[in-house]
Design a protein around this nucleic acid. Structure first.
Length: 262
DNA sequence: ATGGTCGGTATCCGA
């Protein structure tokens, strides 16, 4: 069973690469973030032609999340939205159950800067996530994937000195991510790499690189796209990593997809 | 690297 999470930075602008991804990897679920589309414009028909159905939670120009699943796989109990999130209209959380696993696709608010009014909203969102994760983790197998907009450790940014006093690395954000882990999930990418390989330098790689200034080719990136999984799901993980090819080529997203094989 | 780029859909904002 193959599951991937990918911030596509507009599903319509990215449609060719999304279809390429579905063909190459044939995932049993693809968790999308930043669909940036109104629901009536969501590309259901193009995806259906490729053999995929979608549980979509998109509300307009910004944000938006979805879960893509092959047509012949049953999807049950969709939930759109997160209890306690400060701005429900932004469409940042969607859940569904596939093959006995509760899946979540989440796009956490960026926060912009520590002094921006959106930063406290980001912290409230992270608090709400923790509460929902605790409930879901207690109920059964859980695999959450998405753009957390938090780099878990200083090893997850290209130069920690540049992030002093910025978002994505602050103690306020990292303590809330830790609270999620304490609620009963693991950082799956790190977990699999550390469990599966002791090779020096085989750290979980970055998942995002700025479009500007050749950041990708200079590997000036961050690891902000994560899988959070309950221990039963983590024990089933055979491989977990990114596919760098989808950060290359024509019209790439600024995020690479993160893939786990169960 | 404090934007040299994208995307939406507008002549700017958000990331």
């Amino acid at each position: 069973m193959l599951i991937a999470t990918w911030n596509v930075n507009s599903v319509r602008a990215r449609m060719e690469r999304v279809l390429e991804f579905l063909e190459v990897h044939q995932p049993d679920a693809l968790l999308l973030q930043e669909t940036k589309v109104a629901q009536e414009q969501f590309p259901f028909l193009e995806l259906a032609a490729a053999g995929y159905q979608a549980v979509d939670h998109s509300t307009g120009r910004w944000a938006g999340v979805a879960i893509l699943v092959p047509d012949d796989v049953e999807v049950t109990a969709p939930v759109r939205g997160l209890a306690g999130e400060p701005l429900p209209g932004e469409a940042r959380w969607v859940e569904a159950t596939v093959r006995g696993i509760r899946l979540v696709s989440v796009y956490v608010p960026n926060g912009r800067s520590l002094l921006d009014p959106s930063f406290p909203d980001k912290l409230v969102f992270l608090d709400a996530m923790r509460d929902r994760i605790a409930a879901l983790a207690a109920a059964g197998p859980l695999l959450l994937g998405g753009d957390l907009n938090v780099a878990p450790t200083d090893a997850d940014v290209w130069d920690p000195r540049r992030f002093v006093g910025t978002t994505h690395t602050s103690p306020e954000e990292r303590s809330r991510l830790q609270a999620m882990l304490d609620a009963g999930v693991v950082d799956l990418h790190r977990h699999v790499v550390e469990r599966g390989s002791e090779r020096e330098g085989d750290e979980p790689g970055f998942t995002w690189w700025d479009y500007r200034a050749g950041a990708f080719h200079r590997n000036l990136g961050m690891r902000i796209d994560l899988f959070l999984a309950t221990p039963d799901v983590a024990a089933r993980a055979r491989r977990c990593g990114i596919d760098r090819d989808f950060r290359k080529g024509a019209k790439p997203s600024d995020h690479a997809p993160l893939i786990v094989a169960l």
